[in-house]
Amino acid sequence: MIDKGYVLTIARYNAWQNNQIVDIVKAMDEDALWRDHKAFFGSIMHTLNHILWADTLWMSRFCSDVDLPDVPGSESTNYMATRGEWQAARFRLDGRIRIWGETLSNLDLAGEMTWYSGGMQRDFTQPVALCITHMFNHQTHHRGQVHAMLTASGQSAPTTDIVFMPEDA
């Protein structure tokens, strides 16, 4: 299904996308970041928090040195209280995702994994490769919502086309 090269490319893409968003949200005022846009999670910051929370959750399943988020899924939109906290946590996690990708082998992508879903209140077993693909797809899906909210706020939204990702991203 996927190989290590895919994971490395998408981990780079994730960091590139998040770095572009950081640059935009750093310049925005607080009201604009928390304004309800009637999107699935409401505001830009609520959506960014949800993405970070979900990435942390999945990475805690993939890596023993990543702790579970300290808030339940029902509070994912408030995972970080401030833009600065979110930015620092996002930077650290994106680095961890890239290191994790670099240490994977294609063999690590085979087989299944089992985890307990607090949201669904039951155990799940799925192919590891599918779970990794899901984590990256989830990021991209919700960053698309952030892109739309940034545009609606009059911001210049980031370039999202993976084919235009710089080599040094």
Rank of each mutant, 00 (worst) to 15 (best):
G95T: 03
A39L: 07
H141W: 09
T82M: 02
M120F: 13
A88S: 09
K38Y: 13
L52A: 08
E30T: 08
R61N: 05
M59D: 00
T77R: 10
P158L: 04
R122T: 10
W115H: 07
Q17T: 14
V128L: 13
M135F: 03
F40M: 08
T9D: 13
R122V: 09
F136M: 04
S156F: 13
N14F: 11
M120A: 14
D67Q: 00
H141V: 10
I51W: 04
M149A: 08
W100F: 09
F41H: 08
D161Y: 06
Q139H: 09
V22G: 14
V71F: 03
H142Q: 09
M45V: 02
T159F: 12
W16D: 09
K26L: 12
T125F: 03
A27D: 13
R143L: 09
F91I: 15
T82W: 05
Y6G: 01
A169L: 08
D70G: 00
N18P: 05
H50F: 01
V25Q: 08
W58S: 02
R122H: 12
S156E: 15
N137M: 13
P127F: 05
T82Y: 06
M165H: 07
V66W: 06
S76C: 08
W115C: 02
G5H: 14
Q17E: 14
D23G: 14
M113P: 03
D29Y: 06
T103I: 10
M135N: 05
L68W: 00
G95H: 11
N49R: 03
L150G: 07
I132E: 06
T103C: 15
Q17L: 15
R96F: 00
V7W: 04
P158K: 07
